[in-house]
Design a protein around this nucleic acid. Sequence first.
DNA 1: TAATAAAATGAATAAATATGCAATTATGAT
DNA 2: ATCATAATTGCATATTTATTCATTTTATTA
Lengths: 160, 160
Amino acid sequence: MKTRTNRLVIISQILNTQQIKSQNELLKKINDKGFNCTQATLSRDLKALKVGKIANNEGAYYYSIPTAKAAKKISDSSTSYVHNGFVSIDFAQNMAIMKTIPAYASSLAMTIDMANAYEIAGTIAGDDTILLIPRDGVSEIDLRNRLILIFPELKDRIRR
Amino acid sequence: MKTRTNRLVIISQILNTQQIKSQNELLKKINDKGFNCTQATLSRDLKALKVGKIANNEGAYYYSIPTAKAAKKISDSSTSYVHNGFVSIDFAQNMAIMKTIPAYASSLAMTIDMANAYEIAGTIAGDDTILLIPRDGVSEIDLRNRLILIFPELKDRIRR
DNA sequence: TAATAAAATGAATAAATATGCAATTATGAT
DNA sequence: ATCATAATTGCATATTTATTCATTTTATTA
């Protein structure tokens, strides 16, 4: 049976696995799967799914379903952040840049400093950002693992 | 002086602070600021900035500038660097991390400091790395454009 | 089940966005 | 400076997406 809900499911599957760049392109794929509908319906479907249109590296635009990642970000900022204000962590140029809830950076940085972790040469905290400077020779993985030791609850949030 | 780069800066400022839902809406704001251009130009500008259109919680669509996190490495460290030691630049968590030829970081950072760029709150230079800290509210695009103003020869290496 | 309300859809079209082309302006090289 | 090349832009229009209105399908209630 080909109900609207089925169609929405298929659409989100398609958008999660392919870079679709127009509704007509999507329409063809949807028709191939046995749904017959028109562009007008797809326009409404995409709105219902809150699908956005964003650019990839090459600058080509494609439809994008709000990802689990984005959803997570939203839930992070509203409710379920961990106790110390941790929001996210990024690695660049062999440093770690940790984002926190506004105003939480210095207390979180202090917690890190007090752990006396060998891997961490020092920290610089702003309002909602901490820069973690690893010692020479310390890899990103080493740093991640150390942070997980300090904050076990980060385990599921720190890996890609 | 109202150059294209100026316009791009203003556009990104607007998009970072307001939820703009159509190019005509943006066109009015841009015109108010003294730029006169047409919708066609804005269409091209948005593409150049890789602006996407995404839904907010209520399901209304608005333009969105890609975040620093989503932006990826934009320079190629294998090609020849420019005269002042610049090698590459990366953006993360709304900061810029600039790599230079070894020992060139502090002199390059000094050049940046002397430009007295509003967008840049400060710099920290190591041996071959400079951390550029933007002022609150300054976007990655603002920073890129400012750096291009300081070092015109970066133009092709700093923007996609 | 029949009657009624709500939701979903297509066809046509409005609205929004992108683009081909020609003109203009900026950039570089000699 | 002068010429050549590349970048930027507006206009007109093509392409893409959203919406109105009428109709059909699905759900709800008596």
